[in-house]
């Protein structure tokens, strides 16, 4: 085999490798976003279908807080709520799915399965990608105390208000999603919200945490909550 053939083959392999890397960058920066947008739109459509089918039940009449039945558990990997954060953009809304598996987080935000349900006592904790897959929590550090995070499960609106954050911590710091989260400043049991994403933006060495508490709930028939009106 001549030197010419060896040099040529090595050069061709290098060019191939370079092209491969460029394609991979295109995939990560651009294509995951396209896929995630499609997947999230599909999840939102699923939710809206589901909510359209369920009867408008004038269940709990205001004032009668007699024995609220325990809520049905969410199904793993399935959407159950929509989240709105006006600070991240008036049109910013994402589906919230049960569980924080890799495949689940590609389709929306993930609810930590071991944390409480929407509006219940305890800590409702949600994770989302900072970058790639539609960058749902790219602007999470912009959240400030007093900002509203509004969720709906099709029957009620839940308005949470941010109390603290962004707080930077290590990935193994699971106490930040405890019922009374460590470092959150909360001292008593309550109805809390925790949002987590990664930090730095493209890295995975740390996590960014934001905490809030449940400010108000209202049935969907009562219209959009104050925070979403313009």
């Amino acid at each position: 085999m001549s030197v010419r053939v060896i040099v040529r083959t090595v050069s061709e392999l290098c060019i191939t490798l370079g092209t491969l890397l460029v394609l991979f960058v295109v995939y990560v920066l651009f294509w995951t976003g396209v896929k995630a947008d499609t997947a999230m739109a599909h999840q939102v459509a699923l939710l809206q279908d589901q909510w359209a089918k369920q009867p408008v039940s004038p269940t709990s009449t205001p004032g009668s807080s007699a024995a609220p039945e325990p809520p049905t558990p969410y199904k793993d990997g399935k959407p159950f709520a929509l989240m709105y954060i006006p600070r991240l953009g008036f049109t910013w809304n994402k589906p919230v799915l049960e569980g924080t598996k890799t495949a689940t987080l590609k389709k929306g935000l993930g609810h930590y399965a071991n944390t409480t349900q929407l509006g219940q006592k305890g800590n409702f904790a949600v994770a989302g990608h900072r970058r790639t897959y539609g960058d749902p929590f790219k602007d999470l550090p912009k959240l400030r105390p007093g900002d509203a995070v509004v969720l709906t499960d099709g029957a009620d609106w839940f308005t949470y208000v941010i109390d603290k954050g962004p707080y930077r911590t290590l990935p193994a710091d699971v106490q930040v999603i405890d019922p009374v989260p460590r470092k959150s400043g909360f001292t008593r049991a309550g109805r809390y919200l925790t949002l987590t994403t990664c930090d730095p933006e493209w890295g995975h060495s740390h996590r960014l945490i934001v905490w809030g508490h449940l400010e108000s709930t209202q049935p969907v028939e009562a219209g959009k909550p104050e925070a979403l009106r313009r």
Binding site: P171, A172, C198
Partner: peptide
């Protein structure tokens, strides 16, 4: 690429024990 991408660090947004 879908197989290779989770091996990279952009994806971890959860706190866990691992």
């Amino acid at each position: 690429f879908p197989w290779a991408e989770p091996l990279l660090p952009f994806n971890d947004s959860t706190v866990n024990d691992k």
